[in-house]
Simulated assay, not measured.
Amino acid sequence: MHTLDYITAGKDLLGSGKALIMVHGRGGSAEDILSLADALPVEDFALFAPKAAAHSWYPYSFMAPIQQNEPWLTGALHVLKQLVTDINVQGVTNENIYFVGFSQGACLTLEFVARNATRYGGVAAFTGGLIGDRLYPHHYTGDFGGTPIFIGTSDPDPHVPVSRVHDSTALLEKMNAAVTERIYPGMGHTITNSEITDAAQAVFAPAALKK
């Protein structure tokens, strides 16, 4: 099972006042996802990258019946909850907490923020959607208060159907998120420079305006 274990980089949290939680994908690592920060405009952020046990947040597809991915999914969501709480305790409000995830990490990130919707700084989900064999609206509570959320994916993608991305976008918008959805024909299961540019504009440009 997962425990709260993470690595950090970037600015000191107390000095920056802004946190970016970066969630790696299946088979990836905290170090891998932290390297993505080099391509994003987050030089003045404190960076946090939690580690999944055995490099996987849950064992089966994100579109498997939810119970098949338990208790790992609940444990993974709890890790993110603990990390957000730890950041809050250090004086940083949710409005100054941002999230980035790739693949399985993008799915987990979207699932976490939707189950704990409030005004976050922003969310960038590189190839992901809400988790389950179908969407379960009763799992999701709160109001995003206009939180900018970017969701990008390839068409096609071997793991994430575009239809699930569309459905996730619609649900998040109903919860008052400002969603930017981008579908990239033939991109493959990866992150491209174009996608990074789009995500930076959608999620982190508003942060720059707060300086």
Rank of each mutant, 00 (worst) to 15 (best):
S56I: 14
D167H: 05
F144Y: 04
L36F: 12
N94L: 03
H24K: 11
V203N: 10
K11L: 08
E43P: 11
L4G: 07
F62T: 10
Y136W: 09
A39R: 14
F204V: 10
A207N: 12
S154P: 09
A54Q: 15
V42Y: 05
F102Q: 05
T147V: 07
G105V: 11
H24R: 12
E70Q: 15
G105D: 06
L34G: 08
E195I: 03
A170N: 12
I87Y: 00
G122H: 14
S29T: 15
L73N: 11
V23L: 00
H159E: 03
L34W: 00
H166E: 13
Y6H: 15
A207Q: 05
T8M: 06
H166K: 14
Y60M: 09
K81C: 07
D5E: 15
Q67S: 14
F45L: 11
L110Y: 06
T109K: 04
R115H: 05
S29P: 02
P156H: 00
F99G: 10
S56E: 15
G28E: 12
T127G: 12
S163P: 00
I33Y: 00
D167S: 12
I33E: 10
V100G: 04
G27E: 14
Y58C: 10
I87E: 00
V179W: 00
M187V: 03
M1K: 14
L77V: 07
V79D: 06
Y140D: 13
P50V: 06
L130R: 11
M175C: 07
A106T: 06
T180N: 09
A124L: 12
P206V: 02
F99A: 10
G152Y: 01
G17D: 03
L13M: 04
Y184K: 07
T118G: 06
A54I: 06
N116L: 14
H78C: 10
I131R: 12
A53T: 14
F150A: 13
G128M: 10
T192G: 03
V113A: 03
Y58K: 09
M22I: 10
G27W: 11
V113N: 13
A39H: 09
P50S: 00
D155T: 13
T190K: 10
G132F: 01
P41Y: 01
K81S: 15
V113W: 03
M175K: 08
